[in-house]
Simulated assay, not measured.
Amino acid sequence: MNVPSVRISMITPALVNGISTERPGRSTHAQTLEHLRVDNRGGGRMILHALVGGDTPLGSRWIWRVFVERGSRPIDSAADVIGSILRARTRSTVPAIVDLIEAIRTWETIRFDVSMEGDSDGFLFQFGSINWTSVQVFAVSFVRQFELRDADGEREALSQVSLEYHYPLDGELDSITSHHSWWFRSDASPFSAWLTSVEQNSLWKVLRSKQAVGFEVSQEWV
């Protein structure tokens, strides 16, 4: 059977008397699979139903459901991807709010190597005063969070990409109550509705008269 190699984003053992030692994110060659059926679910998603050649120590064979995202990218590239999208829109090191929101709208359509189920890919909008920098500032940030799961479907790690503005903390900003709002792919409402609600937040009217002193794109594993 001549099929190309695929990148695995999640593996779920479907036969409990086989012991899976594979991890998400590893690559395998489909030529090693004894049987292969592909379901095209739309939206770039495929599910490979595979009976893997080779016996387990218990003498049974492994059956895996392998979730693959067509054209998905490594999680560690997520910060570089949003950075490239932003640079295509503006040359400013502190992008305008409208440019950032439109960049995020594009970024959300790009898939990374995580499951499309549950809370594996989500977005956070948050703001409030922070004091863990050298100078106390008012921070406004968008975060994209990826959940990496192990072969049993349990959380293994989280990767967060943060897009954060810093504003000098004055009396008006200091009086604003901190806020956060999450959206996950498992939510009933679409991403577009969540992003519209973010755009309608009253904070933006306050920030029209403010000048951000910094903007940072960062990514970390937590």
Rank of each mutant, 00 (worst) to 15 (best):
Arg144Lys: 15
His29Trp: 06
Glu102Gln: 07
Pro57Gly: 07
Asp174Pro: 05
Gly25Phe: 15
Val66Ala: 13
Val66Phe: 13
Glu154Pro: 02
Leu58Ile: 06
Leu163Ile: 09
Thr177Gly: 12
Ile176Ser: 03
Gln136Thr: 15
Leu148Ser: 00
Ser72Ile: 00
Thr177Cys: 03
Leu48Pro: 06
Gly43Leu: 09
Arg23Ser: 14
Gly71Leu: 08
Thr28Gly: 11
Ile19Asp: 05
Arg155Cys: 00
Trp182Asp: 05
Asp55Thr: 08
Arg105Met: 07
Gln160Cys: 06
Arg149Asn: 10
His35Cys: 02
Glu199His: 00
Ile110Tyr: 04
Ser197Ala: 15
Met116Cys: 11
Ser189Ala: 14
Ala79Asn: 11
Ser175Gln: 14
Leu100Pro: 00
Gly43Cys: 03
Ser141Leu: 05
Asn40Lys: 04
Lys210Thr: 09
Leu173Gln: 02
Asn2Asp: 14
Lys205Arg: 07
Phe215Glu: 12
Leu33Tyr: 04
Ser218Pro: 01
Asp113Ile: 02
Phe67Ile: 11
Arg155Lys: 06
Thr196His: 01
Leu51His: 09
Val81Asn: 01
Ile85Leu: 15
Phe215Gly: 08
Gly59Ala: 01
Ile85Gly: 10
Ala188Gln: 15
Thr106His: 03
Ile101Tyr: 02
Val66Asp: 09
Pro74Leu: 08
Thr56Lys: 01
